[in-house]
Write a protein that binds this DNA or RNA. Structure first.
Lengths: 170, 170
DNA sequence: CATGATGGTACGAATTTCGAATAACGAGGT
DNA sequence: ACCTCGTTATTCGAAATTCGTACCATCATG
């Protein structure tokens, strides 16, 4: 019985662990739509063997390059962004240093080094109302590595599709 | 052969479709750690039958209260935020109106109405280099509902844990 | 008490995943 | 060219999981 010849494409450039690899990208794309899609189905769609998909996915997961998680809809769970804060670091301090300090705070979910008016833009979330106040006190004002902080409290979140909501399940 | 009597706990308060239901909560908690955990394993841990888990999960998913998705670690995948843009809407225009227009653009992954220096803060992502230019041209400058736009190109993303990275896989 | 509706359980069949052996490929050496 | 060696793909039973579906328990209602 003739065995169907599968695709010969293999990882050429970088390590298989890299998510930039072409096949990995495609796998990820599919899993972003449905994190529970069967490996065998992915394999079929991408014309490689099931084992390959299994290898790749577990490789990516083991190296923390890919996570497959359940999310309950942020809107449904009333996820709110408390504030965006534009920061300017003090003279003699690098944005990276400040970022590394703030990174540890679990309320900070997003830190981006930017060019323009600010050095860093961070996003803050929290549960209770005092959290913002407390955060500003402890992490901003009590530190001398920040020259300026523009706090912009969130009023309404119109869109937040991180990787979520690319397609609505049907 | 005696069949082990399983838990009698059943949904009491609201619909089974609600994520607030106690059993659903527990299911979600487990799936947040590993979105591919076998239903049979979840069942075992929560002392209910596999079928129940299956019912619940597909119920939640069908109603878009739960989504199981793959996320590739943004830092690892060198996911870059191309830019954060602080927007001020034109006089006579509400932030909501602008938000609703921008929402449709797939490059815009985040829109937050804020108080402070700006009216809206949006986050932009893209693949190729011309995307930012094109976006500014089409969505910002070609429209008269925006009075001012501070574009802050992203340089490096230090942290972006939307719901990601709550726990590191082990 | 019927009756219907909802949600849980059970169980065999179909499918998927897993483990482990084998094959294919690419990159260096000699 | 040829031969290793390490890495990645593939293959193929066995084990595990999921699925379809029938059936049971509970509860609310008429």
């Amino acid at each position: 019985m003739a065995v169907k010849k599968q695709s010969n494409v293999r990882a050429t450039a970088q390590s298989i662990r890299s998510p930039k690899d072409d096949l990995n990208q495609q796998i990820i794309r599919l899993l972003q739509q449905d994190g529970r899609m069967a490996f065998s189905e992915i394999a079929q769609q991408l014309n490689v063997s099931e084992g390959t998909i299994r290898n790749r996915v577990s490789g990516l997961r083991d190296n923390n390059m890919l996570r497959i998680v359940a999310m309950s809809d942020p809107v449904a769970t009333e996820y709110t962004t408390d504030a965006m804060i534009g920061l300017n670091v003090a003279v003699g301090v690098t944005p990276r240093q400040v970022a590394e300090r703030l990174e540890k705070n679990p309320r900070v979910v997003f830190i981006l080094w930017v060019a323009g008016r600010y050095d860093l833009i961070i996003e803050l979330v929290s549960d209770d109302d005092d959290a913002l106040k407390e955060f500003l006190e402890r992490e901003i004002h009590a530190n001398d590595d920040i020259a300026n902080a523009d706090v912009m409290p969130g009023l309404k979140n119109f869109k937040n599709q991180f990787l979520l909501k690319q397609h609505v399940r049907e």
